[in-house]
């Protein structure tokens, strides 16, 4: 058993778990944050994506112990003051989900992608960047549309603020 302490969505949290406990199980079971999903459990589908120290990672392929001391953001940490994050709002506006199971991972991946590429994203880049996320409803078209809309919105907002 290990005592793990990390920052999750801006709050310092700690919990006891086995050294072999995966980060996704720590988040879901110890912290009760069930927005992060376990899809394939074999590192391929990306439903478990969270941000660790600002970068997207697969929480099903990372030990909670590896993440100790880090800063984690999950899907629950995106919306601020009751307002959807622009990426969440874009998924809603563009019907970027069907069954919704892959959506937390898609949204976290999109936020990371937009952070790295800014408003410069094009469709081919978005599709290439979605390599590690699988939508089994095959609803990629509207997912790509949502990400491009959010990137335009966020890129635009940044320009307006400068």
């Amino acid at each position: 058993m290990a005592k793990i302490t990390m920052t999750v969505n801006g709050r310092q949290v700690s919990g006891q778990c086995d050294d072999r406990t995966l980060l996704v199980h720590f988040i879901r079971e110890n912290l009760g944050l069930t927005g992060t999903h376990v899809g394939c459990d074999t590192s391929q589908c990306g439903t478990c994506v969270v941000h660790m120290d600002g970068k997207s990672v697969k929480s099903c392929s990372t030990l909670a112990a590896q993440a100790a001391g880090s800063d984690i953001t999950t899907i629950e940490g995106l919306a601020a003051n009751g307002e959807l994050h622009p990426v969440q709002a874009a998924f809603k506006a563009n019907h970027g989900l069907q069954c919704g199971f892959c959506t937390p991972g898609m949204v976290m991946t999109a936020v990371d992608m937009i952070r790295r590429h800014g408003g410069q994203l094009d469709e081919a880049t978005v599709r290439a960047e979605l390599e590690g996320n699988i939508c089994r409803c095959t609803g990629y078209h509207n997912i790509v549309k949502s990400i491009l809309a959010a990137a335009a919105e966020m890129g635009g907002a940044r320009v307006a603020a400068e």
């Binding site: 590192s43 990306g46 994506v49 660790m52 970068k55 997207s56 990672v57 697969k58 392929s61 990372t62 991946t109 990371d112 992608m113 960047e129 390599e131 590690g132 996320n133």
Partner: peptide
């Protein structure tokens, strides 16, 4: 290599 999440780790 892999995908963006794999490349981050």
């Amino acid at each position: 290599i892999g995908d963006p999440h794999v490349r981050h780790m």
